[in-house]
């Protein structure tokens, strides 16, 4: 009896008291390090009155940070959606020198601390940097502008787009394309009708995961951006600024908005994956 986790018969308390210790450790840990902090945020938000919440949440500076954060994250994840598809395609279907190296380096944004990423990106894309120097004559400034925020978000979210598409592409039957080809389909028809549809759930999942990561990103963006309100100030930086001014209510409201967006993105990811399983399972 002591070894079976929640089964049907005895009462809830009995189950809790007699649950195996791995269960108790799991729940204790989740409660202490996850539920308690989350509850702190929700409870704090609930102590504010609705009019106050609305005023803080729709403050012009706050609105502009949502715009910068969500719009830039969306653009970054869509760019990554296209680039990720091409990268995954090239890594799965072609042989070329340096392929293994490229495959391994895709995960760099997961391994490289974001402060380092922000630092090196801001140097390279600054107006006298290695790449920024080329763009300067065309009047394109990257570091300390919204474009810089975009570059940092592309960097941070890139692996998601590649790594979600790659395994699906690997499992795809090349025979299907051969069949489409031999039946007279053009390259474009083969791509649109045969290759793309089964990849779509994976591509969208990658875009949604990248978006979610980019929305929450702080480290690399704060270093490459100028953090100027109404220009390139993102919501996570605004939270920190509010905290530095001891404006806990302000930080809480913006934090809650960010949390709700993240949870919605998570829900969308799960829905896409569930649909994907149903149609292409």
């Amino acid at each position: 009896m002591t070894s079976s986790p929640p089964s049907s018969s005895p009462g809830l308390w009995h189950q809790i008291l007699h649950a195996p210790w791995t269960w108790r450790v799991t729940w204790f840990y989740l409660t202490l390090f996850l539920f308690l902090p989350m509850a702190a945020l929700v409870l704090k938000a609930l102590t504010l009155n609705p009019a106050e919440i609305w005023r803080i949440a729709t403050d012009p500076v706050a609105i502009s940070t949502y715009n910068v954060t969500f719009f830039t994250a969306l653009v970054a994840s869509i760019i990554n959606g296209f680039a990720g598809l091409i990268i995954a395609w090239v890594l799965v279907r072609y042989e070329f020198p340096g392929k293994r190296f490229l495959d391994a380096i895709i995960d760099l944004p997961f391994a490289l601390p974001t402060a380092v990423a922000g630092l090196t990106l801001s140097t390279i894309y600054s107006s006298n940097g290695l790449i920024g120097g080329f763009l300067e004559p065309f009047g394109i400034k990257v570091s300390f502008t919204r474009l810089g925020v975009l570059v940092a978000m592309i960097f941070i979210a890139l692996p998601f787009s590649v790594r979600t598409v790659q395994p699906v592409l690997q499992d795809m039957e090349a025979e299907m394309e051969e069949a489409a080809w031999s039946m007279g389909a053009s390259q474009w028809q083969t791509f649109w009708r045969v290759i793309l549809p089964p990849l779509m759930p994976a591509i969208l999942t990658g875009v949604a995961m990248g978006f979610s990561r980019a929305v929450g990103e702080y480290g690399s963006v704060v270093i490459i951006a100028g953090n100027i309100p109404f220009q390139d100030l993102i919501a996570p930086v605004l939270i920190i600024q509010r905290l530095e001014q001891f404006d806990y209510a302000g930080a809480t409201v913006v934090g809650t908005v960010l949390l709700l967006i993240s949870l919605s993105a998570l829900l969308v990811i799960n829905l896409i994956q569930a649909r994907g399983r149903r149609f292409y399972g």
């Binding site: 989740l30 996850l34 308690l36 902090p37 989350m38 702190a40 945020l41 704090k44 979610s212 929305v215 929450g216 990103e217 702080y218 480290g219 996570p236 930086v237 939270i239 920190i240 905290l243 806990y248 930080a251 809480t252 934090g255 960010l258 949390l259 993240s262 949870l263 993105a265 998570l266």
Partner: peptide
């Protein structure tokens, strides 16, 4: 269990400060 990956690190820090 996967939730912390979807929460912005800054919001996670904020939660601890509020606690």
């Amino acid at each position: 269990i996967d939730l912390p990956f979807s929460i912005s690190p800054v919001v996670a820090g904020l939660m601890l400060v509020l606690l």
